[in-house]
Design a protein around this nucleic acid. Structure first.
Lengths: 340, 340
DNA sequence: TGCATAAAATGAATCGTTTCAATCATGCGG
DNA sequence: CCGCATGATTGAAACGATTCATTTTATGCA
């Protein structure tokens, strides 16, 4: 059923080696032969078997990408960026979502190892990177995405999350909000941890300001809604007047809860800041002030770094890219022009 | 660098065939040997080379999935559903987005062919399915996703888009809206075409009702915003009082434009219906009435069908799944309890 | 203990492509 | 017309897992 080089060779009256050369280094074979072989390929509908190719090569031309949440538009954008840059260099990207599950993360890495991916891009769930060390020792380059590598032992492309948390909460404080809530979790996610640290640093430096941490199990709209309910149920005098959500999905959920109740106005009663600047943040009930991360650029850069590591082999210099986040101010903190 | 069965065999003091048996049919090998081999595998850190495996097998354990827009949450949900069901059966899904480009669609299919995927799931861009015929003739099962197969020559898992368009516009008409606009495109996308047909059928059966078609180049928030601007710029007496957008992203964009202008209220001046029921539709400025498609179930079902086709080989009965869409009413058409 | 039979283990052949040392053809200067 | 350099082509080996016909070992029974 499947046509192989052998049959192409027979059809064109040349050897298999020549067919392979036509495929991979046409410059070393005479024009007449190229034509003959091309015609045979066309006629028989030959399609190269990638498995055989990579068996010989020892590795594939795929990169493996593990993100924390495949449904979060932020990671979709990262993926998009990575996919494009990879394609430009003749690679493809296998994307998998760990979905908050360590088991799934492991499974994906197992899969990638079996497939002998040319490199791994990962936004790891926690700080135990031992598995990633093993993978790299086996010869597969690894780049951390959206997450720095504390001791610089891995290349990484990330955003300064502490700074992001800082500017978010500084913005709230500048608006006169003193009772701030940080909504986010799990703490095991380093990004969440860092954003919280940034928030705390602002509070520490501001008189009268207090921060209460409201943990969530995940970074989803649903969890956000639950957090919103909790805020609504609070005693009015302990209720925050400013909320910093660890990402936009949470913020969206919180906003939904608040708006649906009708009893608290955003931003008048509670100002809300999210994180990521996903497209949907600006089309929310109340457009959400957020901290922008250059998602596509992160994806592109990560692939660039990976390509360099793959090129250089074992003795690579690790690269640390850290982007600086930017505040995007919208109505969820400053209100609309007409409504006070 | 890479450990192969041969080395495992040496370490365990058995033959390569036995190692393979331990890996694939442990029931035929004695318990003692299984233990020896397992220990060797553990010790050497052996990871099966999938390329070699699938070279022998003749095909991989991957399915290829081509969606129209990888950033549309609807397709993300379809992908998620497909991925889960595939994983349950020991397969993985390679997802690619054709991004409105025929060339990209072709490239993805080329890639999938080279990778010898075990099956193709595709939401094709247009009605020329000749390429898909070829793929199937080469022995790879193909299932159409979110799109029926006119002549039933392919298995398909889809939603009745004509019905979807019908209930959307019927809803608008029931609310007394007579000047309806259909926003969507390109027409080459069959889903768009069908939703429009459904809309037209309602209009045809309703006295005084008129439908104007506002074509878009893509189904994105950005295009939606542009369409919204066009509506704002219209002469008030030719402006529609009801809009049916071909998907939620467009609806979101339209809503943004209308709300930002401040001169037209939704739903009082213009009622708006979207399509897909993506999560973000309900957290929009004005929560959007929409037509729900069971995205994850579509993905899951598509994989089920593909598995059956792969199982059955050439002489398969084609299956046509058609889900019925459901209207989800929100404030963008009926207003809030308190306002009006 | 011997023998028939079942269970377990073996290893060579296979999948399709790429690589590379070896061979063959071509053209050119002398 | 020969020798040689250059270019073109060849074909066998290799990649690593799986398969299966064959051989070896174990088990049960008389």
């Amino acid at each position: 059923m499947a046509v192989s080089v052998k049959e192409v060779a027979a059809e064109a009256g040349v050897s298999v080696g020549t067919v392979s050369n036509v495929l991979n280094r046409p410059e070393v074979v005479s024009e007449r032969t190229v034509n003959k072989v091309s015609a045979a390929i066309e006629k028989l509908g030959f399609v190269r078997n990638d498995a055989a190719r990579q068996l010989r090569a020892g590795h594939s031309r795929n990169f493996g990408l593990v993100v924390l949440d495949g449904r979060n538009p932020f990671f979709m954008d990262v993926t998009q960026g990575a996919q494009h840059r990879a394609l430009e260099n003749g690679y493809t990207v296998l994307m998998g979502s760990s979905d908050n599950s360590l088991t799934t993360e492991q499974q994906l890495l197992d899969l990638f190892e079996e497939q002998r991916v040319a490199g791994v891009l990962i936004s790891p769930m926690h700080s135990d990177l031992s598995r990633l060390w093993k993978i790299r020792e086996a010869g597969t380059p690894v780049v951390l995405v959206d997450r720095g590598s504390g001791d610089r032992s891995f290349s990484s492309v990330s955003v300064n999350d502490v700074e992001g948390g800082r500017i978010a909460v500084q913005h709230l404080v500048d608006l006169g909000r003193k009772k701030i809530a940080f909504v986010g979790g799990p703490q095991s996610i380093e990004q969440v941890q860092h954003r919280l640290e940034g928030a705390q640093s602002v509070i520490a430096g501001t008189a009268d300001a207090v921060l209460q941490v409201m943990p969530t199990k995940q970074l989803t709209v649903l969890e956000g809604r639950a957090a919103g309910e909790r805020i609504l149920a609070m005693n009015p005098d302990e209720r925050p007047d400013g909320i910093f959500a660890a990402n936009d999905l949470l913020a969206l959920g919180i906003l939904q809860a608040l708006v649906m109740s009708g009893s608290l106005r955003v931003p008048e009663d509670i100002a809300l800041v999210g994180y990521d600047n996903i497209d949907f943040a600006q089309s929310a009930v109340v457009p959400i002030t957020t901290v922008r991360q250059p998602a596509e650029e992160i994806g592109r850069t990560a692939v660039d770094v990976l390509l360099r590591e793959a090129e250089a082999g074992a003795d690579t210099v690790r690269e640390q890219f850290v982007f600086t986040p930017k505040l995007v101010v919208r109505e969820s903190t400053v209100g609309t022009g007409n409504a006070s």
